[in-house]
Amino acid sequence: MAVTVKLPTILRKFAGNEARVAAEGATLGEVLKDLESRYPGVTKNVLADGGGLHRFINVYVNDEDVRYLGSLETPTSDGDVVSILPAVAGGA
C-alpha cells in the first residue's frame, strides 16, 4: 500500500527537504506511523498528545477531508495521496 505524502514546508526538513515522500499503510494512522519511522520527528506536531490528529491540522486523502472519513482509521490504497495542511483562518 504505497501512498504519497505531501508535506507542508516546515516538515520537509525532517525528510531531506522533499515536498513529497512515500509511505506505506492500510490506514492513515499506519501511514503516519510508517512516515515517522522513516523520518523521525515528522509527525510530532501533526498528532495531538492524545494520539488523534491535531486540531489545527487538516489531513486529506486525495480530495477528501479525513475528518469525514474516519480520521486515523481512514483506509488508504496504493497510489493515494495524503496531504498535511495546517489551517489558515481568522476573522474580523
Binding site: 505531501k6 477531508d65 496531504s83 495542511l85 489551517a87 489558515v88 483562518a89 481568522g90 476573522g91 474580523a92
Partner: peptide, 19 residues
Amino acid sequence: DASTATYRIDPIDLMRIQD
C-alpha cells in the same frame, strides 16, 4: 466559512496553491 466575520482558507485550495 463564507462569512462576513470570519475566514478559513479552503484546505483544497491551499493544497493546490502549495503545489
